[in-house]
Each structure stands twice: as structure tokens, then as C-alpha cells.
């Protein structure tokens, strides 16, 4: 990945979660992601992929962090400081402007048309009303004839394509996808994932994709990060320690 300044840079980031006698500890020793880079977080269920994605999505506060930076538009956002200062509005603004999300199953709004769902992040940012942006994206993702419909009348695969379009419509620097094909059949999963990779590449967005499907990730030729998992018994119960480390 050369020496380009990373879009995302994490060092010594930790997050703990407690559930049913199990203490889960996520450790991100190092994680760098440069602009336009595409990486898969691969691991079994419970390995901490989603927890890491929550952190990167600025949706979950780290317990500790030596460095957590997002560099966009030639400026650096110090996420550690923002969390420490309780700057939830600034975090929301960063999410709105620089991050796109593809949830597990669409996450589309049933009360909006497909067009309005895709257009929502653009409207939120007050970008110029330009239907052609939405229409072009929808065309590339094969849902151009569904724009006037409500999400309820779409198949699961179509909804995922709409979700991809929504994640890219406002030109984010970073796209996060958490098991985006978990609810579709394998053939559709390949199509949807390919579309996501293509479109992210075409728009120059970095991509962080969480998946438990090693084979598909290998087939797609994506760089992979897999956590080291350690399980211990302690007086409190079971401790699961998941450690991610990857430097550019």
C-alpha cells in the first residue's frame, strides 16, 4: 500500500463487552487503511468483526485508544478527542459526510421510495438536488426500474443493492459493510459483493467489509485481516480476547 497517509489509523484501541458470563475483549493493536483501499475483516461469528466495525463507524465509543484518526479532505479528525469531549454532533457530522454503510439486511426506510432512500444521505448533507446521480447509481446496480417503489416490494437481493447505492450516493471516503450478503443466496451474494467492490472502486472509496465467508473473500481477491482469538477461564468466567493487527 506504499507510504500514503492513511485514511484511517488506529493504535491500541480496546473495547470490552459483557454477555452471559463471557467477557469479550477487542484489541486493535494497529489498523491502517489508505484511501481507496479495500479490506475484508474475516473471522468466525463472535470474533469481534462487528465490534470493530462499530468503532470504525463512530457508532461505539472505545474504552481506550492510543490513536484513532480519520484523515479526510487534507484534515485529520482525532476521534479519541471527539469521544472524550462528548462531541456527538461532530461525530454525527463525520458519519454523515465521510462514511457510507451497508447493513446486514438493507436497513432501508419502508416509508420512503427507493429513490428517496438512496437520495437521503445527499439531502442530509444539503448536496444539490440531482436526480441523475441517484439514477446513474441505480442503473449501475440494476435497480433503476425500482426507483419509484417502496422497499417492501423488492427482493432481499434488490434491497441490498439499494443499500449499496445509498452508502455510495453522497461520495463517502469510507464504506463499511457488515456481512452485507448474509441474507441472500450464494449466487446473489457474489453478484451483490461484486457490485459493492466495483462501485466503491469506481468512486474511490475505501472499503472495510466484514465477512465470515473465507472462500468468497479469497475468490474476490480482497486483502484480509483476521483476528487472533484467545480464550481463557478466569474467576469472572470466560474471557475471549480478539486482537486485530494490520499496518499499511
Amino acid at each position: 500500500m506504499g507510504n500514503a497517509s492513511p485514511l484511517l489509523s488506529l493504535r491500541g484501541v480496546t473495547k470490552q463487552r459483557l454477555a452471559a458470563g463471557v467477557r469479550f475483549e477487542l484489541h486493535v493493536d494497529a489498523l491502517d487503511l489508505v484511501a481507496g483501499e479495500r479490506i475484508a475483516l474475516v473471522g468466525e461469528s463472535g470474533s469481534g468483526k462487528s465490534t470493530l466495525l462499530d468503532l470504525v463507524a463512530l457508532a461505539s465509543r472505545p474504552d481506550d485508544a492510543a490513536r484513532f484518526r480519520l484523515q479526510v479532505d487534507d484534515a485529520v479528525a482525532n476521534v479519541v478527542t471527539l469521544w472524550r469531549d462528548g462531541a456527538s454532533d461532530a461525530l454525527a457530522a463525520l458519519r454523515a459526510r465521510h462514511i457510507g454503510y451497508v447493513p446486514q439486511t438493507g436497513g432501508l426506510f419502508a416509508f420512503l421510495s427507493v429513490f428517496d432512500n438512496i437520495d437521503l444521505p445527499r439531502r442530509l448533507l444539503g448536496l444539490p438536488r440531482d436526480g441523475s446521480v441517484v439514477e446513474r447509481l441505480a442503473e449501475r446496480l440494476g435497480v433503476a426500474d425500482q426507483l419509484r417503489k417502496k422497499p417492501a416490494s423488492l427482493s432481499v437481493g434488490q434491497r441490498q443493492r439499494v443499500a449499496i447505492a445509498r452508502a455510495l450516493a453522497h461520495g463517502p471516503s469510507l464504506v463499511l459493510a457488515d456481512e452485507p450478503t448474509a441474507s441472500v443466496d450464494p449466487a446473489t451474494a457474489d453478484i451483490v459483493t461484486n457490485l459493492l467492490l466495483e462501485q466503491a472502486k469506481e468512486r474511490g472509496a475505501a472499503l472495510l467489509l466484514a465477512s465470515h465467508d473465507w472462500a468468497r473473500v479469497e475468490r474476490l481477491g480482497l486483502a484480509r485481516i483476521a483476528p487472533e482469538i484467545a480464550r481463557e477461564r478466569s474467576d469472572d468466567g470466560v474471557v475471549v480476547r480478539s486482537t486485530f493487527a494490520r499496518q499499511s
Binding site: 485529520v76 482525532n78 454525527a92 457530522a93 454523515a96 465521510h98 442530509l124
Partner: peptide
């Protein structure tokens, strides 16, 4: 770094 507030 300052990001304009979303028009939410």
C-alpha cells in the same frame, strides 16, 4: 477539523 453540521 470541522465538518459542516448535517441539515437534519
Amino acid at each position: 477539523m470541522t465538518v459542516p453540521a448535517p441539515r437534519d
